[in-house]
Design a protein around this nucleic acid. Structure first.
Lengths: 200, 200
DNA sequence: AGAAATGATGAGCGATCGCTCATGTTTCCC
DNA sequence: GGGAAACATGAGCGATCGCTCATCATTTCT
């Protein structure tokens, strides 16, 4: 079995110096992706912006895709932590929980939707799979949230409702500019689903 | 003013033969985009699949982006026609109109969401602007639909509601697989918004 | 101190890209 | 028929890409 199982790092960074290089590369990749788009994010440019040589980049990343793979993994880890930190409290009103959920969604995109939008341009099937997995986890999470309030709901298929919940919120989050995606829109989004779910 | 105002065609196709070449190129571009993604859609490959020479391609398209620009314009024209064909009938129930609207949304993606997903990968700012314009027109259309039913609605900001309507539907349409985006999901989507909008 | 890891460097290779242009072929029109 | 206009061809140029590797620098450990 000669295949290394999806190891993003070619060499483990053991010293503080090397970890700094890896961080610089990821940070540079994110910056270029945000400012100039995927096509401008060449490996040479990333290394240059990161302040390391192209050789150093390739000591830690197997190929170009590995850089974006690591970047997306880092973002998704953050997303996972934020999601898990959102408490499911069956005692509080559902609309409050929905508000917290949408707020978590908004915090999942600390640099606005643009980074995610650009990450989706990465033409690697693995990355798209990771994003799809994140969505599935979000749907599962939303389903658990709904199940905690099952008694008060008037929908039969909680999974379908959760699917709409997540992808509708995502569609809005990706389309709305940061100033649009404010308190007002979030409140209305929570109301949209509260009215759909709740038995009056 | 030396700038030619966004003319996709370098030369007007006057004979049937040349129009066939242009069609073949656009069709090939769409096919490659769908099957292998944007990075595989090189100009040489497009010409090869289209069955014309690379020189012919560049007789009608100023550069690579012009091909995708023409492709997206063609798709958006179709989208516009479908949208306009969706009748606003104030006499029929709002939920019926919503169903028609979502159905139009589904028909706007005759090859499934994948072509649109790939078109968004085209790194041309002009194309993104065109897609944004399409969304704005869709929001305006939805607003008009809601205004026709204003008396029965319990939301104050129709424009905000229309914004959520369009982008939520779009988020779901882009995420759902063709078999998922069926009668069931559409019905539930219409119900989601009907309950939100309608005064019981 | 000095040997062994570990980390950093960047010139440049091979491949591929978008695109041109000199040339040949087909159609139109008188 | 024949000249002009329209259309088609594809080898290959220049630029850029991802990435390697021989070499040097720094850190760690005994």
């Amino acid at each position: 079995m000669p295949r290394v199982p999806a190891r993003p790092l070619r060499r483990q960074a053991k010293q503080a110096r090397s970890q700094a290089s890896v961080d610089a590369v990821l940070q540079a990749a994110a910056r270029i992706l945000l400012r100039d788009g995927y096509l401008a994010a060449t490996t040479n440019r990333i290394a240059e912006v990161a302040g390391v040589s192209i050789g150093t980049l390739y000591q830690y990343f197997a190929d170009k895709d590995a850089v974006f793979d690591a970047l997306i993994q880092r973002e998704l880890e953050t997303a996972g932590r934020v999601l898990e930190a959102t408490v499911i409290n069956a005692d509080q009103p559902l609309e409050t929980s929905l508000g917290q959920l949408f707020d978590a969604f908004r915090r999942l995109q600390p640099r606005g939707p643009e980074l995610y939008r650009q990450l989706e341009h990465v033409p690697n099937a693995l990355l798209r799979k990771r994003l799809a997995e994140r969505n599935e986890r979000a749907v599962a999470f939303a389903t658990r949230l709904l199940e905690a309030h099952r008694a008060e709901l008037r929908v039969d298929d909680l999974n379908l409702a959760a699917f709409m919940l997540v992808h509708a919120a995502q569609g809005i989050a990706l389309s709305a500019s940061p100033e649009q995606f404010g308190e007002r829109l979030m409140t209305e989004l929570a109301r949209l689903f509260a009215r759909y779910l709740h038995a009056d």
